[in-house]
Structure formats: C-alpha cells, structure tokens
Design a protein around this nucleic acid. Sequence first.
DNA 1: AATTTGTCAAGTGTTCAACAATGTAGACGT
DNA 2: ACGTCTACATTGTTGAACACTTGACAAATT
Lengths: 243, 243
Amino acid sequence: MERSQIHRVSVADQVAGILRQKVLRGEFRPGTSLQEIPLAEELGVSRNTMREAMRILSLEGLLKRSINRGIAVAQLSLKDVHEIYHVRRVLEISAVHAAKKPAPDLLREIRAALEEYEDAVRASDWVSAVSHDLHFHSLLIRFLGNRRIESFYQKTIGELRMGMVLVDRRHDRPDILVPAHRKLYQLLTAGKRKECAAVLARHLDDSESRLSRVMDSHESARVADAAVPKSKRSVRPTARVHD
Amino acid sequence: MERSQIHRVSVADQVAGILRQKVLRGEFRPGTSLQEIPLAEELGVSRNTMREAMRILSLEGLLKRSINRGIAVAQLSLKDVHEIYHVRRVLEISAVHAAKKPAPDLLREIRAALEEYEDAVRASDWVSAVSHDLHFHSLLIRFLGNRRIESFYQKTIGELRMGMVLVDRRHDRPDILVPAHRKLYQLLTAGKRKECAAVLARHLDDSESRLSRVMDSHESARVADAAVPKSKRSVRPTARVHD
DNA sequence: AATTTGTCAAGTGTTCAACAATGTAGACGT
DNA sequence: ACGTCTACATTGTTGAACACTTGACAAATT
C-alpha cells in the first residue's frame, strides 16, 4: 500500500477529466455543441454533475458557454493563437532567464522529453511529437518554480493543443522544429541563458507563423464550406459568449 | 432604450459575483467555512446554484474546497504571497517593457488612477488606497494587450487583495508607496522603459517585504491564538485541498 | 414573393426533495 | 486521559420537475 494520497476525488472532477481528454485528443471537434442530457447518460452521471463538469471546462477555456444556447467546444481564432503565443513568449523567456543554476533533475527531464520528441518524429508519429514538443516547453516553465504560473501556462497550452489536433498534419512538418529544441537544450546546459532566450524567441515566432499559416488555410476552407447554404450548422460562429 | 447589452447573466454567475465581492471586501474572513444551505437560503437561491457559484470561486482560487469537508475562504500563506509577487514581477515588468509607444488613453487612465490613489491616501482611506494602488498596476498590464494575461493577472491580484484586507492597516503605511507610483508614471511618459522596469522591480520587492512582515506578525499571533486549547476552530489550517 | 406573426419542440437554467457517503462531536466505557 | 461507538450535520449525487429562451417552421399579412 503505497498511495501517498488516497484516490478521493469528486465525480464531477472525474467527468471533467474525461471530457478534457476527449477535447484535447480531438475526439470532440472544435465547434461541436455538447448537450448535457445525452452526455450525462453516456457517462452514467446525473445532469447536475455533468453541468458542474462543463462549468469547470468552460472556466478553463476549453468549452464556451452561450447562455440558454448551450455549450460548445471552443474554437481558436487566429487572434487566439497569436495571444497564446504571446503568453508563451512572456513566460518561457522569463523562465529561461531564471535558469541561472538549473536543478540537474529538471535538466535530465528536459533531455528525456527531447529524446522522446525525436523518437516520435523518427517514427513519424505526429500526435506524439506535438505532445512531447509541448512537454519540453512545459518543463522550461518549471525554472520559475511557481505553481500559479505553471498552472496558467498549462491551461493556455491546453487551448493551443486543442487547436493543433485539428490541423491536418500533412500540411505541417514538425520535424523541422527538432534542431531548434536541441539547440535550446544545449545552450541551457551551457548556461548561455541570454542566447538561449533569443533562440527560443525565434523558435516561438517560427512555430506561431507555421501554425497560423496552416490554420488560415483551414479557416478559409471552413468559411467557404459554410457559404454553402444547405449545410445546417449546429453552432453559430458569432454567438454572444460568457465565462 | 440605451442598453447595449441586456442584463442577461445566469443566477449562478450573479451569486458568484456577490460572493466574490464579499470575500474581496473582507466580509468573509479567510479561513471561515461557507456552508451551502445557509448561504443559499440567505440569497434566495437553490443549493445547486450556490454550489455552482462556489465552484466558480474555488477555481478562481478565492475559495478552497476540501472534499466532503466543505468550502472555506482561502488563506494566504507567506509562500503564496511570495509566489503572487513573483507573478506580478514577471507580468508587470514585461508589460512595462512592452510600452514602447503607449496608447494615450491608457496613459490618461493611469494618471487618473494615480490621482485617485493620492486622494485616498490624503483622506487616510486605506481600503480605497489599496484598491487604487492595485488598479494602477492592473492598468500597466494593459500594455501587453493580452486578454488571457490580463484575466490571469486579475485573478492573481484578487487573491492578494483578499490577503490584504485582513491585515490591520495600522501596521502598515500605504502613503510611503505613493512616490514610487509617481516616479513610475513619470518614467513611463518619458519613454524610459528600462529605468521604469528597474524602479518597478524595486517597488514590488519593497511592497512584498512590507506585506510579508505584517503578515508574519499576524501569522504568529494567529498561531499563538490557536495554541489556546479552548478556541473551537471551524476549519483546520492543514486540510487536504483540491481545485 | 417577402415579411411578419404565431406556434411548438428542444434545450438550458433553476429549483426541489431525497438518499448515500463522509466527517464531527459528544457520550460512553475502559 | 484515551480510544470506541453512536448520532448528527454537511457535503456529494441523483432524479424529476417547471419556467424561459431559442430556433425552426407554418400561418397570416402586406
């Protein structure tokens, strides 16, 4: 018996976790509306608990509520992507600057993430590659040693990930970003923080414009699709939204 | 008829707003436990709505839930204060650096906040002074022009404010911090961002150590108080907590 | 034909009442 | 004083009900 924390979490939290995974893995596509009753029945919980779970996710930014009209999976706009990358720049660069004498354990973890990332790329497993890429960056944030910043970063990255699973991977080539990561790790261990920050800034700019380009083409395709009058869309793109 | 947005928000959100105010104004002291049924009846809403409202606030960090034991107003530790000031340093300094050519409207708002702050200090209205002080800093964040960062900052400041209302104002002298703010504004309008950032960093350090000192004395007083066996405490300070 | 109005079903927002699961406090015996 | 047990209080969860909005379609109007 080696459980430091007994596994006691509320059902609502568990449901929120399940939904979160489904959203982040792309099982629920952005824009699709989630209805309380069917989902609650599907997971075998009551409507109230499902509401609580959805409330959690909407506060995390993964779901958008529009009052009396229901809840839908959040849809990232280009502006959102820009904003999220701005967040990343501010936090990750601060983190790198804070890595004056980094903990060896953390550096080891970063190295591990890097290797897994490279493995995934070699195996052409893009989904896994994206995951390890983001994990690499999440580890950088740990240099700040700040729980609040970490959870904010994590939440923000979650939104980004949701936007990334959508994109058709054939349109992007994650392997190109590998050398940048290797360089980052190298500069970090060498203690060249300033240079590392500069490389990181360029890398994030590059990554952002890459994603923006892909999303832009998708966006225009989606809009063109919507122009066809027949298609009944379940969710209005310009709904008043709160939360 | 000149209502741009008809006042349509869910009851749960309104309740959350009311509770938020009460917590931030110090009507609910940190550590006090909030019970669902009495509070729900007091505001004339059902228990479920109250639960939703409390869920919102606990995700904001103002309330702490410990499963099956209830919800209590969050209590800032010295470590929390340190972490929050760390967040402030990272974000506010980034913001000042981003103020290359600041919007004139924003500068005007900052000036207004500064003057209100000074007025409050002259009137010895400490509560109002703290409020305007924090508002001044919130406006700095706007230089980043990033909704996500702003709401994160706002949430963090909320936690801090909750901790500040508790401290007996006689132990601190907010007036001392006025010149620093004036200097910040002055450097900002002069476009001396680097220097402004330096002053800001010092100011935040000063502010943190000031609050820490006051809280430390309170803390020890509180602990000593708790040592008296008779006093029935409604909430255990070391409860396992989630959310 | 185009616009307006009425109707209706579906879904959310909210309430209520109950029960189960858990934690709390006091009584009890040792 | 120390644990154990029991009764009570509170939270967690469920299920059902009702009021209101919304969106879509049909009917009525111009």
